[in-house]
Design a protein around this nucleic acid. Sequence first.
DNA 1: AATGAATGAGCCTTCATTCAT
DNA 2: TATGAATGAAGGCTCATTCAT
Lengths: 204, 204, 204, 204
Amino acid sequence: MVHTDLPSEDQRPARRKPESLAKLKKAARKLFVERGYHATRPQDIAREAGLGHGTFYLHFPDKRACFLSFVEDARQELDEHIRARVDQGQPLQTLIANTLAGIFEYSQNHPGVLNAAMTDEIVIDAEGVQATPLLQRWGADWAEFVRAAVARGEVSVDYDLDIIGQAILGAIHQAGSEGFRSGRKREDVVNNLTRFLVRALKNK
Amino acid sequence: MVHTDLPSEDQRPARRKPESLAKLKKAARKLFVERGYHATRPQDIAREAGLGHGTFYLHFPDKRACFLSFVEDARQELDEHIRARVDQGQPLQTLIANTLAGIFEYSQNHPGVLNAAMTDEIVIDAEGVQATPLLQRWGADWAEFVRAAVARGEVSVDYDLDIIGQAILGAIHQAGSEGFRSGRKREDVVNNLTRFLVRALKNK
Amino acid sequence: MVHTDLPSEDQRPARRKPESLAKLKKAARKLFVERGYHATRPQDIAREAGLGHGTFYLHFPDKRACFLSFVEDARQELDEHIRARVDQGQPLQTLIANTLAGIFEYSQNHPGVLNAAMTDEIVIDAEGVQATPLLQRWGADWAEFVRAAVARGEVSVDYDLDIIGQAILGAIHQAGSEGFRSGRKREDVVNNLTRFLVRALKNK
Amino acid sequence: MVHTDLPSEDQRPARRKPESLAKLKKAARKLFVERGYHATRPQDIAREAGLGHGTFYLHFPDKRACFLSFVEDARQELDEHIRARVDQGQPLQTLIANTLAGIFEYSQNHPGVLNAAMTDEIVIDAEGVQATPLLQRWGADWAEFVRAAVARGEVSVDYDLDIIGQAILGAIHQAGSEGFRSGRKREDVVNNLTRFLVRALKNK
DNA sequence: AATGAATGAGCCTTCATTCAT
DNA sequence: TATGAATGAAGGCTCATTCAT
């Protein structure tokens, strides 16, 4: 006996809002990554999602909000990805190595996403006020990270950690971008970067 | 004796195309820095230069070329600025410190220029193909720089220098951007960054 | 014997379409008055009525019909309001004074309604054909009114009453709109207008 | 011998700004009158003027400004038309008769213009702030007009002239609109209206 | 009867570029 | 060489209306 009214896995256009939102977000991510912010029209996103372009505005007040939501999602995903992989009670070197592995793993699973998400705010809208650019926030995270290592006695150098946090993030970002662009293996990038950072932080 | 190569202050009425080009470049730099690529119209540049809109297209084939010319000029200026300040026959630490001082000095004399010039190509034109992004080129420069130090025996660590070159550039860029954005003093940024990089490169 | 025409207060669960219609009409009036025709969306009306957007189209074929229904309701309400207040068997001056008082009383009880209802048809839909604009109809009513006074011998001037009917209506409309907009008291407006009209109609 | 480079009276697309502005204004008037504000798109105006639609925005910041300019032009034209026809040193009756003749003459020469220009501001833009609606301004003009007659001793009734000014304007507007719509002759409308107003104003 | 997600024609406006002068 | 009026493709967004539920 078969349920004829069991619409699971059906192909019909659907009509549930959350589904459309998910489709739009997926499409938006794809296009923002592939084409960048300015070359992606709300209409393109809607079409990519298989929806009419009016639907876009049912879920986002405007294009900018859609981009910001994409950025926020990427940030959370990466955070969770790293948190799931890194055990805080490890020595500095392992910690850094694992964190970098986490970042680059995510980066490889979602190619281009981090780069697209880090698009500077001025590119999006001169007037807009994105709370804090993603790069800066992650730089601050690294500052915290090192501060904790200092507190544990693992790092004993006298840096201005706000500056160094940003430096670390910058090193990771740029080495990662170009490392992969030039086809290097993940382990090599992680390895080199880990040694580079550990040496820079370890006193002696 | 007649000065044939002294066209400045000459009496002939028309023939000062170079003057217009200089005005346009200056205006373009100002606006690209202040507003970013997309928010700057060729018309704005021409007007800022005190010229008619049409004149813009006498000197640049299109907006993109104007931006690229701005980037190239900034790159050359910075290169010269650093070259004039850094003596290659110095120990690594001094070399790095002087180079960083040169970069940040330029950055302070021309606020925003480096940041604007590093605008990712995807932002300019999805189809276009900027030879090599400025960041990547400068990262390669740092790779060369370190390779030379290795050759001199000053650095004896076994890095993949292409990766590390990019990492260094990234650290400088990000630490610089945020260091100044947060109002830190140039010496502090240079100082911290120098120690950071020297430690990372010096094998004990 | 069964009351087939007494659906009010019945117990059956569904079947209160009239209730929804009333809610929609009330909401439509509020919004048309507050925002005007073009700034009011069917969706706004439905939401103001506490109903889903789709419900709007269960009761009106389109937005235009809803507006026209609003106009018609206002016309009837005003007519009834005046009829209830004015005794036809009075001398001209009293008749005019009472009618004006009726109009302005209604206008004060339902602020903005008459103005909104008199929105010119061209504003509603260039193609549409509103039977006869409200202003014109009321102008014709005044023509009738004066014709009756002439028949009773109270007015003995030789006017083209169709023209004069419109003139009277125009005077009332404009003086009323601006009288209230400038905060004048109802009695003052009624008073001045009554004397103005009576003098214009009374042959010496 | 013939000047081949004498471009007077030429048919070429032209390139002088004032000419385009004039064309646009003419086209705007035509369309605002024929279709009303909302049914007229900037694009339609430009096309009617034989220009590209970008040109519209070289002359008006937006559609609203174009409409307001149309209104202002109409106001000035009418004012001048009346001023040229009416001699202030005449008795009230003649004055009113001539003024009305002037208004209706203009109205006939420029059919629909006054009606279109009097479109209520709420129709144009709920947010906008048109200094004072045309109707109200003209009502105030009539108030002044009567005030002067009172000063000259020609009118000795005790009206609130601000109210009565609006009433007069309303009477003229409405009687005129409908008079012509129903095909009445100008003299008849002027005649009836003049007698109506003079009686209303003359004390005995 | 009621709902509200979905739709897409259509609106206003911008801007890189051209070309007659 | 220099000008700036003119252009129209293209962009972001709205809204009256439909229809599956």
